[in-house]
Nucleic acid binder design. Structure first.
Lengths: 199, 199, 199, 199
DNA sequence: TATGAATGAGAATTCATTCAT
DNA sequence: GATGAATGAATTCTCATTCAT
């Protein structure tokens, strides 16, 4: 059915993930433009040639790495707070999840920022994972508008505004040697955003 | 007096600026990491070697380009709305100036974003022009807090939140093929921000 | 034991030697200062990039080439005439070996001369192979002095004088389209030197 | 007759000499292959373009510099010891003059050595100044042979042997931080050479 | 399948030479 | 004549990609 080759597929997926993980660590150390395929191979404990059994090109590795990394955050966000009642609760959960994620993965940080810049020919808007992320957020906002919890403004712009505030809080936590407590930042962000959007 | 070499200096400054302008256009087309010195030379209508009479290295060109470009915006912002009374008025002027600036200089866009990512060893926080920009904003916020116009919260975080919202509006204007009217975006941003910060 | 990597080492050493051999031929044709890495690669039948798997830089190739080439002569000289009784016999063997070496390796000629000029920051005296060469000669001279075969003068200066005579004979053989017979030059040199040094 | 343009010629000759002098100093500092035309211009206090009013190319500057420098020594040698009676006296004068010359002009040293290596396509033998030098020496040797002062061997080879011994003494004086006294080296060289050549 | 040596297009940088002022 | 800005060919070195083992 869905195949005799399951095992191979699993192995392949595992290898790809290992390579992306390695790529993430190296990117975090050297910055996207200075990472060589050799760097990634070394970090992954593989030969350079082997990398090319799993990926077409350097560009593909980096693109996939970016996707995987973001996907993991988006997934966490997707399951965050199924039980929450109000938009404020949802928002707080999401913000906390994001801040945690970045506190846990300083590595991820540069990739995340790098995502905000043009990558190859693809732009932010075209990036599928970013699409998912924004769609998720927009759905939540739309629902909250429908429930009258927040004001009836352009949903897309509201979402963008929300994500931008969170992003920059994240960014500054990364940069600060001693950032404010996570709870403080969560409270500030949620408060600022809620003021901006409540009816 | 203030020097015999004025003329040479002026010519030199003019050349450097031309090169940075060219660099900006090319970066806008190809993305920072893919720009070659030859690209810049071609765009500037100069020979590759000539570029090196004015700059030490490719890195220096890009760094200087970034600085110049941002400095010009920061300067505009600095003189914006000397006559404004309320923080809302100031904010509106600033947001409008920024949105205009980016509408006028799509080129600049990628550079601006690129600034938000690690550049060489320098980071956002260390970047002097960004420092100036943020300091400006913080001063305005602090004054407004003192006047009781906006609530008494952490000034730095308020400023970051403000700038992040504007930045993402800008970003999305750049990406949209047909962005909302500039006035609409200005209103949205000012409104969102003011809600977030008023007492 | 003395390593699992013997084979790789041998291959590497062989490659390095091939490249140095190629470098020697090209230097002989174009002169040290005009040799490009591309020249060496072409001569070696390798791609430019391959050269850089074996050497760090153009400078390293040339330095190593010089060393290898001289080392091979010094080695020959070291084993020359173990059975000789008198200093005159040893000297004759050595001179003959050198003249042969250069007759066989016109290529080597320029390198040898180049060694007599400053190379990078290192000078003749600091060059390890030249050190070996001179030390060898000095030992022979000292022994001969001890045996009373040659006069008791400053050993270093005697050695320098000896090597300089031989070097210039070599040089002129290279330059002459039709040099004297090898035996004639050997006899002349040995005779001249022996007169200069015998007690 | 031989011209209205004498004055211009003198100025031109003077300029050329200044440039060669400058070149000599720079070569002494940086080594022949690393000297740029800009270096020479700076050292001479002229603009780069001006250099090209006096010389066709970088190569010509260096060639002429070499020639001038050597010519000055050869000239000194030509007038040395007109009054000397025996070959030994002449030889001693010449050796002393050469050692002095190099003690006075460490700058000159590298050029001298550089001359011993191929220069462009011209070789040692073809170099006119070296020709002059060797011819001078050979004449002296031939005369001495005629007078029965030294043995009747191949004049060219004797001359080569003589010049090589002197050259290496010079070389080693340059290299040694504390060389033997000039007189000692003169005595050693003259003694060694005379033994090699006397009948 | 994994490897890593080999490749060579392409990038940054240098510098001899020219030429308008 | 003198200048030095401009030029671009030449050079070193890098690294993504291929492919024989």
């Amino acid at each position: 059915m869905w195949s005799v080759r399951t095992k191979e597929d699993v192995v392949e997926a595992y290898r790809k993930q290992s390579i992306c993980d390695a790529a993430m660590r190296v990117v975090a150390r050297k910055g996207m433009k200075d990472v060589t395929v050799q760097d990634i191979a070394d970090e992954a404990g593989l030969a350079k040639g082997t990398i090319y059994s799993y990926f077409e090109s350097r560009e593909e590795i980096l693109a996939r790495t970016m996707e995987n990394a973001t996907a993991s955050l988006v997934e966490k966000l997707g399951i965050a707070c199924k039980a929450c009642r109000t938009f404020r609760e949802v928002l707080e959960q999401r913000v906390r999840t994001q801040l945690h994620h970045f506190d846990d993965n300083r590595d991820f940080f540069r990739l995340y920022l790098a995502m905000a810049e043009p990558f190859g020919e693809r732009r932010l808007k075209q990036h599928p994972t970013y699409q998912t992320y924004l769609a998720q957020l927009q759905r939540l906002v739309r629902d909250a508008v429908a429930r009258g919890e927040i004001r009836d403004a352009n949903v897309e712009r509201l979402s963008i505004a929300i994500s931008s505030v969170v992003r920059d809080i994240v960014l500054h936590r990364m940069i600060e040697r001693e950032p404010p407590s996570l709870d403080d930042d969560v409270q500030f962000a949620v408060d600022f955003i809620m003021r901006g959007i409540q009816s």
